[in-house]
């Protein structure tokens, strides 16, 4: 069990290289991501997903994020997919009107070119969605994301959705992450010194060991919450109403241009998928 969380663990994946994508307004990036994700779900096959692939390549190139770095993030994803995709292929059920000619068949299991193609299409879609979110996280800081979200969801305030309060909750959570990591590290160190081995044992034994760490973690964290409540009151926090912000965001012409291109590609992907089903 590592004792160096606070030094090794980084939360948020922002990579500080100065690129066009990094400089884009966070709101534009979030809108684009939402749009690309939605349109990806509208695609129906390898043809319609091509424009989405084009967007992914375009962002990858312009963001100056090293390709190797992006690929390294795929290790865990591929492990999951190695489990999921074979299932998809073996249990493939053709939609109405599609002719299946299996290479092999037993009970409900089969291997067919249609099944393989459907499995690969799912894999492509998963990878593209994953890539889209990752690119947002690589090129945007958490603070820009939460500021952007606050402005982006501003209209929801009219529907009495407490947007500012939601963003503030996220801010409080982000503030506590490094503090609690240090706390967790201290608890684990103290337990280790009292003879507990965290790196051994089966499910039951590990659960038994984790409980004595979790309880002080929760209890101490909730105590700290009580103090922060007083502190926020003392600093005049009264909810989102009447609050102003120091930070401002500006939409530049590059932002409009970037959004237009992405919209064009994404919508065409959705259109091809819906209309031609390929």
């Amino acid at each position: 069990m590592s004792l160096e969380f606070s030094r090794t663990v980084t939360f948020g994946q922002y990579i500080n290289v100065n690129s066009v994508v990094h400089r884009l307004d966070a709101r534009i990036k979030m809108l684009s991501v939402a749009c690309v994700m939605f349109c990806t779900f509208m695609t129906r096959g390898f043809v319609s997903i091509l424009p989405i692939l084009a967007i992914a390549v375009l962002i990858q190139v312009t963001s100056k994020i090293p390709v190797g770095y992006t690929l390294r993030g795929y290790r865990l994803l591929l492990r999951t997919m190695l489990f999921i995709i074979p299932f998809q292929i073996l249990f493939y059920r053709a939609p109405a009107g599609v002719q299946v000619d299996p290479y092999w068949q037993w009970w409900v299991l089969s291997i067919s070119p249609q099944g393989i193609s459907a499995g690969l299409y799912t894999l492509t879609r998963v990878i593209l969605l994953y890539h889209t979110i990752n690119m947002l996280m690589f090129t945007t800081t958490m603070i820009d994301l939460s500021d952007g979200a606050e402005i982006l969801f501003e209209p929801l305030k009219k529907l009495r959705v407490p947007v500012n309060e939601l963003v503030m909750t996220m801010t409080v959570a982000l503030k506590f992450v490094p503090l609690l990591i240090t706390e967790l590290e201290r608890l684990i160190r103290a337990q280790t010194a009292r003879g507990v081995r965290f790196d051994t044992g089966g499910v039951i034994e590990r659960t038994k060991k984790i409980v004595p760490v979790l309880i002080p973690l929760f209890v101490n964290a909730l105590n700290r919450a009580e103090v922060l409540i007083v502190a926020m009151n003392a600093r005049c926090y009264q909810g989102g109403e009447g609050r102003t912000k120091l930070r401002t965001m500006h939409i530049a012409s590059t932002d409009v241009f970037a959004l237009s291109i992405i919209l064009l590609f994404a919508v065409s992907a959705a259109y091809i998928g819906r209309t031609f089903g390929v």
Partner: peptide
Amino acid sequence: QIVVAGVLGAI
């Protein structure tokens, strides 16, 4: 509610 939820989310 903001602070307690934030702390728990952080956990």
